[in-house]
Design a protein around this nucleic acid. Structure first.
Lengths: 212, 212
DNA sequence: CCTACCGATCGGTAGG
DNA sequence: CCTACCGATCGGTAGG
């Protein structure tokens, strides 16, 4: 009979729980209003602790922003990448990743829509670490789609003539537009429009031998 | 012999020129960093006038924001809608409007990319007049594309079976993604990727009788 | 985690 | 258009 505590979930000190609560609130604010609207004073008010109490956890606003982006990355991995990657490599995974993204939009995982779409729009035209984070996140996601498209081509599920990079761009455009318009118009049907477009676009990319 | 001054361009008082100069700077700041980063003090510094000198032109920050959006709307009309509408109604105008938008992105009319794409991303998840302005701008633009698609259908240039609303969504997704990625990656080739996708998408939508 | 503070900047006002 | 202000809030520090 060991007294080792159940390892899952791990015990968290008060400080760790507060730290996580701050980041949760920070992600919500940033997804709705942007990281620029994230202030230490506002987090303090929402969580009912002092400003310097919040500050002590990060010691600079820059680190607060960086940790918020990193925390959002973990959410994206858990809520989009993990379920999407369950599908078998190739065409199924292309479809699985698209559906996982649209489901994440539909479920309202972030109250302001996709955190990273917000990050890209906010920092696309700036310089600095947040621009780099946005560019990297976008490249990683588009690269993942492209890789799975190429696997699908090698498996004969997508025509070998298709430009994988181009197709990834087109799918990503549909996904991101669905995210923005679903949020803007508060219209859950928009993701269905993206599903229709993606289905049709992938049908067009089917190998010539089975297209008719 | 009249002494009426040349009506074009209209004479502007010093006050009117300052007002216009403030709005030009405001549009540039907002396209790069968002309307939330627009402050009266910053405009005063950039234009080397006093804070209250800037303030006197608008009398509230809200009005400054509203006038900035209105001024950007005039730029969009002049730089996108006017050239795009030169094309004949129907398919030509669908293509013309898409090309006018991509050219506007390529020319860097706003230093931070499309002002309204920025506006949508910044205020999609909020409430208030700026959210309404973003939603209205988006609906107007998508509606214009849809109307021209329907005209093209009535003229036999696009298949009657095509869902015009759906096609407008897809074209808009490609245009907006090109805007964001061209800005994010500072890569002018992205708009060419959108042109390729639009060409291919419109070819798919051609009437069944001439598709093969 | 707290109180108490700093200089800078915010939107806005008074009065010219 | 200006100077001179206002209260509120910003990020950050000192010292506990």
């Amino acid at each position: 009979m060991s007294t080792t505590p159940d390892p899952d979930p791990p015990r968290r000190s008060d400080g760790e729980r507060t730290h996580a609560a701050i980041l949760d609130a920070a992600m919500a604010i940033a997804s709705v209003e942007g990281l620029g609207s994230l202030t230490i004073g506002r987090l303090a008010r929402e969580l009912d602790i002092s400003k310097s109490g919040v500050f002590a956890h990060f010691r600079s606003k820059q680190r607060l922003q960086q940790e918020t982006v990193a925390a959002a990355g973990e959410v994206f991995e858990r809520e989009v990448l993990a379920p999407g990657m369950q599908a078998p490599a190739g065409l199924g995974r292309v479809e699985g990743l698209c559906e996982a993204y649209l489901s994440y939009v539909d479920r309202g995982v972030f109250p302001g829509g996709c955190f990273f779409a917000q990050l890209i729009a906010e920092f696309d035209a700036t310089d600095g670490p947040l621009h780099e984070a946005a560019a990297e996140g976008q490249s990683d996601w588009a690269g993942l789609l492209q890789t799975e498209i190429e696997t699908a081509q090698s498996q004969g599920e997508i025509d070998a003539e298709v430009d994988a990079d181009q197709l990834a761009f087109e799918l990503d455009a549909l996904l991101e537009m669905a995210n923005f318009l679903a949020t803007l118009h508060r219209d859950p049907d928009v993701t269905e429009r993206a599903r229709t477009a993606i289905r049709q676009r992938l049908a067009t990319a089917a190998p010539a031998s089975i297209r008719h």
